[in-house]
């Protein structure tokens, strides 16, 4: 290859390719499955203000992400359905910020086959509800709260044999959406989405029946030197991000409960 060709043709291309990522930031967010619609909306709003940056979101169960981050997964921010997991990461020295609460989650009874808006947990003992979908309480906070609510409403012993477990709250909603489970306990944020809200109906489960679901996020140690991660964290406190959370049924954290 002639030296001139390299200087005038290839060099600029190589320079352009290697310098491009440096000018634009990039973050990967691990988000609890209940955030699916809210976070899609929030990142879309964020991208409008930061058109050159790349923001990727992966949805799944909070417990799974916790395990993956402990094993060195390359996530920059972790939005958990329960602030307990980010706190555990902080104690293990795997974070670059203090875990912060961003919203309060709620659980609802939802069916795509019948109108569940008039139903309560006591109705789940009826034989017509032969399968009840909940998220796996072992690693999905929404599943944990669903089991708590069933226990404190006194129907646990009658319904525990009818439970089917979704890997995360998104899969749980799919079990109900396809009718394979006639009813289920899912996140209010999912039940409010038009794709789900157009069918059946939902009833909110009284908050006194389960521990408050304080949802928290944290910047991971992986993003310690990533300025875009800090920018995004700041954006979560902005009025527009908070309005989106509210739109999807998340309540603000009452003063005093925030850590």
């Amino acid at each position: 290859m002639s030296c001139r060709l390299f200087k005038f043709l290839l060099l600029p291309i190589i320079l352009a390719l290697t310098t491009l990522p440096a000018s634009a930031g990039s973050i990967t967010i691990a988000a609890a499955a209940d955030l699916k619609f809210a976070m899609d909306n929030i990142t879309a709003t964020f991208r409008k203000a930061h058109p050159d940056d790349s923001v990727k979101v992966i949805y799944g169960s909070s417990g799974k992400f916790y395990t993956q981050i402990r094993q060195g997964a390359p996530f920059d921010l972790f939005f958990s359905a329960d602030i307990g997991y980010p706190k555990k990461l902080a104690r293990a020295g795997l974070t670059a910020s203090t875990p912060r609460a961003y919203a309060l989650g709620r659980i609802v009874l939802w069916s795509a086959e019948v109108d569940a808006s008039k139903l309560s947990l006591e109705d789940l003992v009826k034989p017509s509800f032969d399968r009840i979908a909940v998220a796996n309480p072992q690693h999905a906070p929404y599943g944990e709260r669903a089991v708590e609510a069933l226990k404190s409403s006194g129907v646990w012993n009658q319904v525990k044999g009818k439970l089917v477990y979704g890997e995360n709250i998104g899969q749980t909603a799919q079990f109900v959406r396809t009718g394979n489970a006639r009813i289920g306990i899912i996140a209010l944020s999912l039940a409010l989405n038009p794709a789900f809200a157009s069918r059946g109906g939902y009833a909110t489960i009284p908050t006194r029946l389960y521990k408050p679901l304080i949802q928290g996020f944290v910047i991971t140690r992986h993003a310690a030197d990533n300025p875009l991660a800090k920018t995004f964290a700041k954006f979560i406190d902005s009025a527009s991000a908070q309005a989106i959370f509210k739109h999807y049924g998340f309540a603000r954290i009452p003063a005093g409960t925030a850590p």
């Binding site: 169960s61 417990g63 799974k64 395990t67 402990r70 399968r131 979908a133 796996n136 072992q138 690693h139 439970l163 089917v164 477990y165 979704g166 890997e167 899969q171 079990f175 394979n180 489970a181």
Partner: peptide, 26 residues
């Protein structure tokens, strides 16, 4: 199995799913 099983002990929770759950729960 993960997609249609529903993770029910004694009827659909097979070994591969049980291992997955153990890993998820650390």
């Amino acid at each position: 199995v993960l997609m249609i099983g529903g993770n029910i002990p004694q009827s659909t929770r097979v070994v591969s799913v049980q291992i997955f759950d153990h890993v998820e729960a650390l």
